[in-house]
Write a protein that binds this DNA or RNA. Sequence first.
DNA 1: CTGAAAGCGCTTACAG
DNA 2: CTGAAAGCGCTTACAG
Lengths: 426, 426
Amino acid sequence: MEDRRALIMSGVRTALGPSSSEHDPGRHPAVRCQAVARNAKSGCSITPLSDFQACHRRSRLIMRLIRERETVSTNASNKKRRVTQADVARRAGVSTAVVSATLNPNSATGVRVSQDTAKRVRAVMRELGYTPNPIAQSLARGKRNILGVFTYESVFPSERGNFFYPMLRGIEMQVSGAGYDLLLFTSAQTAEAPRQIFAGGSNRLGVADGAILLGQEPDSSELERLADEGFPFVTVGRRHSGRVELNWAAAGYAEATSEIVSHGHELGHRRIAYVGGATIREQQQDREAGFRSAMHRLGLDQGPDCCWHIDPETLDAACLESILSRRVTLILAETLKHAERLEDLLRDKGMYVPQDMSIAVLGTPLEDTKSILRWTRFEAPREEMGREAVRLLLAQLDGRLNGPAQTTLPCKFIPGDTLRPVTDGH
Amino acid sequence: MEDRRALIMSGVRTALGPSSSEHDPGRHPAVRCQAVARNAKSGCSITPLSDFQACHRRSRLIMRLIRERETVSTNASNKKRRVTQADVARRAGVSTAVVSATLNPNSATGVRVSQDTAKRVRAVMRELGYTPNPIAQSLARGKRNILGVFTYESVFPSERGNFFYPMLRGIEMQVSGAGYDLLLFTSAQTAEAPRQIFAGGSNRLGVADGAILLGQEPDSSELERLADEGFPFVTVGRRHSGRVELNWAAAGYAEATSEIVSHGHELGHRRIAYVGGATIREQQQDREAGFRSAMHRLGLDQGPDCCWHIDPETLDAACLESILSRRVTLILAETLKHAERLEDLLRDKGMYVPQDMSIAVLGTPLEDTKSILRWTRFEAPREEMGREAVRLLLAQLDGRLNGPAQTTLPCKFIPGDTLRPVTDGH
DNA sequence: CTGAAAGCGCTTACAG
DNA sequence: CTGAAAGCGCTTACAG
């Protein structure tokens, strides 16, 4: 015992012992034919095989005969060939239809199997170690019971903290029990480049009944092509295409931003600025639209140039000056990075958050769990978005849904400490 | 624009617009037959169809004829039926073999397709929107290009901090580029009970070419049954079966524990205790074996009862007394919880870590990232274990590996602050 | 209740 | 270089 352990301990890489398992990679007729030929030569010929290599026509019959012999004579010692339904049927003295019906008693087929027969069939299945081939089932049924999850970036990107994690968790929660497995398309990876759905012409997504797409696509035309194919899919996050209607489960960034503006208004803020990144996708559009519509509703319109589009790294003192020159008292920062950058710049001028300036963040990062805590902000319902995406996809697959399905889920407001009331005049 | 946005904002659940996509769930002959019948009645009959419903024999031929008509006449307007290789072949005026060869130019088949033909075929594929059915490819090839990932618990368990995350990350890293997708078996979930591989007789793992198993199985007989079937799989973490040889990529808990004992010895510790949980699996066995073998090697043997097996919740003052009565100066705690519990009990006696007692933890939890920092400990190479498991599995699938493959990977020692030198006599 | 057979949509030797 | 056909391992109407 001690020795055995020591052996395992010492070797960093050990491959020991004789082969005990053998995988059957599904050989093809000709391959099998050769195996049979060898077999036949080694003594168990059941028909003249002198010119076996040439008798292409006859080989199939011979194969069948030999296969039947094999099934009877060598029980489980010859593990080369996969045990099929036909083997079970033969041995149980029934047709494959009965075996299939035993396996799927609830199927709508007319076949009813008697208790006794079913028992016998099940016994043979155990005896032969039969397991149905799910791939063949999928092909025959036209249904795979697989839901795809596609991400353009890595599914498990960083060391800790994964943007997709909450969504994946929601997806798993909702899909679990619905009888679907989850396929992550890792094969679509092309070296360093972002993944593509239609890499090399063939769409791997097709292994799944439908798919959920996470993360931002570099090229929105892929979504349109996917929709054109009639492949059912749902994106997590709103996506827009001028050409096709897309399905999504999104966060209500517009409403949430609107709400923060209202909140600021109640606290006395009248001059409010929006500072977002240079990249503008659906998400950013929604935030800004929510901002503008709330400003309009509250009669706080300040013309078109109350919104700044600039990445945090580029945000400089000049930029801050232009904001301050408008006598702004509340800044809505798209990201924590924007907020922190603004705070740094303000500090350089001797101004502090929230005493001299209120700032709210329009989201909650997943990575920086500590720094975000003090900020007034909202949080997207990431887990619920994953769940809802699954719901929409399953509804589509069930035929419960005809048109495009688009769900907007409310974000959660988190008061934080960086949005303070202002007295008139400030 | 503003209005449109407002519409999206207001509705929490909106399903709008007409149906634009249609999924073909692979209908069966009879179903299709009915659709065809309807079609035929609506004007495009090409053969007397008065008693169509009854002509079971004839229907198949008719179907074929109508189908061919469809393919020619209605281009893409009738999206009901999936575009197949046969459709492409027909329209391009070639055989399906040529289409297949165009798709797989590198296959070892004798078929060579001329440049021109290939071009024409590809054009037709685009025109018809053809995408190969990966399920059918899998069945025909006998290879799925899917690696399964099975966990007995949820793959994405807790809100934040996921025990499996680093392993999944390693798995994705290694599998990416190898041309495999990753299938998470979420369907195996049975309500609240732990998942089972052989739930309901059929083994869903079979959709994959092979699988990686994560987490502790409640029932080790499932592993043996899986091995009996000849299904290729690798566990992350050492697993032992008396009956079959298993494949695993494990952490070197024995070596790491051994190393900590040696380290303690160098710092002057002579009386060392091991405190582990009541549950003893391979992991715990390895730690304890490493402890015992190091103690033996260093001539520190203290008889059989220098190891305590007790869960942290049950660990009480009496237990601590029995440890202290042996004049122990260093305790190896299996988990952080053990260590913290011991520290609490020591504090009750006015003793402090590490001044009055050194403690090392035999692992690093993933959840409690802050509290663990000060402890002397080691860390399992979780990510590398995932990668190695994939390597072993792929090697098996390639046939590069015959026997069972067992890899032990070294843990990383982290000095921390809770293991201090002792002067003689202490 | 059961058998024979077609079909799911591909791939692949084999014969031209 | 290409076509006709078998096979992968199932499911499912249909005829007994």
